[in-house]
Simulated assay, not measured.
Amino acid sequence: MKSCKHYVLIILLGFWMLISGCEDVEVMTGVPENVKKIRITMVAKSADNPVFLSALAGAEAAATNISDKYSKIDIEIDWRTPKEENPSVQAERIVNAVNDGTDAIMVACSSESILTQAIDHAVNKGVPVMTFDSDAPKSKRFAFYGSDDQKIGETVMDELAKLIGNKGQIAILAGNKEAPNLKKRVAGVKKAASKYPDIDIIDVFIILKMQMLLLTWC
């Protein structure tokens, strides 16, 4: 959870520098005049995911810290994350945020192809976009901040292999099959698994498929 808050702070600093450009920024010494309101729209994957709730808390804390530290800046976080993961809803909310006059957007992409169009639309309208957690590398976003997801998958497989003595049957439990970061993690597991000839991957179970399997067992 701490890492989520940390990278959101970095994202906000990046947006602040991009939007502020070369304007002089003064450290707060008294009551500011002519405060510039900056609205940053945040579109994570799902509003009920603790990871993204932590990211929201980090974004709001960072916005407050920056606003308190510098005069002429007041940052507002505009939370437009769908309740359940849905890339089409994410894309719609990005378009709506642009129409509502947001200054910048940060998004965790549930689908690279669907979100690329929405991101490019925002950038073409003059709104900078940064991705976090899950990227759309072919879009016009100016930066991505996240982990090396394939390396994570490889590390998980290597650690699991140690626990089962480098042999046995395993299953991969993944989330949204369209999410770019989760695709890379699954690919990382499979790549590392190729080093262990006595380990057999039964299947890759996505969330909905796994829920149905559990219901069948029960």
Rank of each mutant, 00 (worst) to 15 (best):
M1Y: 02
M1F: 06
S3W: 13
S3Q: 14
C4W: 00
C4I: 00
L13V: 05
G14T: 05
M17W: 12
M17H: 10
G21W: 01
C22A: 12
E23G: 11
E26Y: 13
M28I: 01
M28G: 02
M28V: 01
T29H: 15
T29W: 09
V31H: 11
P32R: 07
E33T: 07
N34I: 05
V35C: 13
V35L: 11
K36N: 09
K36H: 05
R39G: 07
R39M: 10
M42Y: 09
A44G: 04
S46E: 10
S46Q: 10
A47Y: 12
D48N: 13
D48M: 08
P50W: 05
V51S: 01
L53C: 02
S54C: 06
A55M: 06
G58N: 01
A62L: 09
A63R: 06
A63V: 00
A63W: 00
T64P: 07
T64F: 11
N65H: 13
N65G: 10
S67E: 03
S67T: 06
S67P: 01
K69A: 09
K72N: 12
D74R: 08
E76D: 08
I77A: 06
D78V: 15
W79I: 00
W79E: 08
R80F: 03
E85V: 06
N86T: 05
N86A: 06
E92M: 15
R93V: 10
I94D: 02
A97D: 06
V98T: 04
G101L: 03
T102F: 02
D103T: 01
I105W: 02
A108I: 05
C109H: 04
S113D: 15
L115M: 08
L115V: 07
L115G: 00
L115Y: 10
T116R: 15
G126T: 04
G126D: 11
V127L: 09
P128C: 01
V129A: 05
M130I: 09
F132C: 02
D133N: 12
D133R: 03
D133W: 01
D135H: 11
A136E: 11
P137V: 05
P137L: 09
S139N: 09
G146K: 10
G146L: 00
D149V: 00
K151H: 08
I152D: 02
E154F: 04
E154L: 04
E159T: 01
K162T: 11
K162E: 11
K162Q: 14
I164H: 04
G165T: 01
Q169R: 14
L173E: 02
A174W: 07
N176S: 09
K177S: 03
E178L: 09
E178T: 14
A179V: 14
A179S: 14
P180S: 03
A187I: 07
G188C: 00
G188W: 06
V189N: 06
K190S: 00
K190W: 04
K191A: 09
A192Q: 05
S194N: 13
S194Y: 12
P197W: 07
P197D: 07
D198K: 15
I199L: 06
I199K: 05
I201S: 02
D203P: 05
K209Q: 09
K209C: 04
M210H: 13
M212Y: 13
L213Y: 14
L214Q: 13
L215F: 15
T216I: 14
T216R: 15
C218D: 08
